[in-house]
Simulated assay, not measured.
Amino acid sequence: MRVVVQRVSQASVKVDGEIAGEIGTGLLLFVGIEETDVHKDAEWLAQKIINLRIFGDEDGKMNRSVLDINGGILCISQFTLIADYRKGNRPSFIRAARPETAIPLFEYFKTELTKSQLNVQSGIFGADMKVSLLNDGPVTITMDSRP
């Protein structure tokens, strides 16, 4: 699994002009799932993400996690994160999980995040989504469940 983590002041996602999910201060997660990903990948990333200390403390140092600030999490499925761009100019998505594999794993990942008792929102898997965000910092980190 590959996740792009963005620290945000606010974020929302619309599908067909309607808000599907929105948060205030917290984390916007773009989530890409490969065919070989399993529950262990989702569990490891969920724990890493909720404990990732990228929010400022009273001295302005990145010492607080989304848990510490009681922030929100907005998850967006994004198969394009699994693009193979090394050959030619048109990216290949052959390693991206097909919906029958990706949807249950994406839902499992969200469930793992929800165990934190934080407000976890999401877009709609496979939908044409319009994501709006106010990146805070900016702080953007790419995480992979495997090297």
Results as ranks from 00 to 15, higher is better:
K115D: 10
N63E: 09
G72T: 08
T142Y: 11
M129N: 12
R90E: 01
N135G: 10
I76N: 04
E112C: 11
K40N: 14
V120I: 10
E22F: 02
D37R: 10
L113D: 12
G60C: 12
A46M: 11
I73H: 05
F79L: 01
I23C: 04
T101A: 12
K130V: 07
L81Q: 04
F125Q: 08
F93V: 01
L45K: 08
T140E: 09
R95Q: 03
G126Q: 12
G21F: 14
T25D: 07
E34Q: 12
L28V: 06
V66H: 05
P147V: 11
D84G: 00
Q10N: 00
Y85E: 10
L81A: 07
F106C: 08
I23P: 05
I69N: 04
L67P: 01
I82D: 06
I141C: 11
L74V: 09
I19L: 06
G21A: 14
E34V: 08
A96T: 00
K48I: 07
Q117I: 03
G24L: 10
E34F: 14
V5E: 00
M129E: 12
P91Y: 01
V5F: 09
D144A: 15
F79A: 02
E112Y: 03
V38P: 11
R146H: 15
I69Q: 07
D68R: 03
S77F: 14
M1D: 14
Q10G: 00
E107G: 07
R146A: 15
A97C: 09
D57T: 09
D57G: 11
A96Y: 05
Q121Y: 02
D41F: 13
D144P: 15
L134D: 12
T25V: 01
N63S: 09
I69E: 02
R95M: 02
A42W: 08
G60Q: 14
S132M: 04
G21K: 13
S132N: 04
A20S: 14
I49C: 08
P99H: 03
R146K: 15
S132F: 08
P138Y: 08
Q10R: 07
T25Q: 06
K115I: 06
